[in-house]
C-alpha cells in the first residue's frame, strides 16, 4: 500500500524542514510544495484563482526538488502570490508544474514569515520502503 499523500514539517535549529510524501515522485514533490507554503500560511486557506507555470531541470532528483521550490519562491516574491495547489510532471531530469493560488493579502493571510530559499540541508528524495516517495529539505526563513 503506497504512502498516502501528505506533508509535514520537521525541526531544524534556526529554521524549518519541509517534507512531502506521496504515492508517486510527482505527488511527493507537490506535497513538499504545500509544506513550503505552510511555512508561510495555511495552504488550505488559499483559493486557486490564478495558475502559474514553472519549469526546471537538474542533473539529479535532489537538485530538482530544490530548483522546483526555489522557482516557486521566485514566483511568490515577484508576483506577490501564494500557492496552495500543485500539479507536477517529472520526465527524466525535467520538471514542469502548475501552481495555483492567489495574490497575497497581508491582512487576511497573515503570512508568518518570508522564506528566503530552499537549501540542500537534510535534502533527500527517495522511495519509501512501504511504497511511495519522500521529498524533503530545510528552508531558510
Amino acid at each position: 500500500m503506497p504512502a498516502e499523500a501528505r506533508f509535514e514539517h520537521f525541526v531544524h535549529g534556526a529554521d524549518i524542514g519541509i517534507r512531502g510524501i506521496g504515492p508517486t515522485l510527482e505527488e511527493a514533490f507537490a506535497q513538499a510544495a504545500r509544506a513550503l507554503t505552510a511555512v508561510m500560511v495555511d495552504p488550505a486557506t488559499l483559493q486557486p484563482r490564478q495558475t502559474v507555470e514553472v519549469a526546471c531541470s537538474a542533473p539529479d532528483r535532489e537538485t530538482l526538488l530544490v530548483d522546483f521550490l526555489n522557482a516557486l519562491l521566485f514566483e511568490t516574491a515577484t508576483r506577490h502570490m501564494l500557492f496552495g495547489r500543485f500539479d507536477v510532471r517529472i520526465e527524466g531530469d525535467r520538471l514542469e508544474a502548475r501552481a495555483s493560488g492567489e495574490p497575497i493579502d497581508a491582512a487576511r493571510h497573515e503570512p508568518a514569515v518570508e522564506v528566503k530559499g530552499a537549501t540542500m540541508t537534510e535534502l533527500a528524495v527517495r522511495p519509501l520502503p512501504e511504497g511511495g516517495w519522500l521529498a524533503q529539505c530545510v528552508v531558510d526563513v
Partner: peptide, 28 residues
C-alpha cells in the same frame, strides 16, 4: 536570497570539476 540560491547550486554541482570533495553539499 536569489544570489545565494543560484551560486550554492552552481558551486555544489561544479565541486567535482574543481577537484573538491564536499563532506556536505551545503559547503558548496
Amino acid at each position: 536570497h536569489q544570489i545565494g540560491t543560484e551560486f550554492l547550486r552552481e558551486m555544489a554541482l561544479a565541486a567535482p570539476a574543481h577537484g573538491i570533495e564536499l563532506p556536505d553539499r551545503e559547503l558548496a
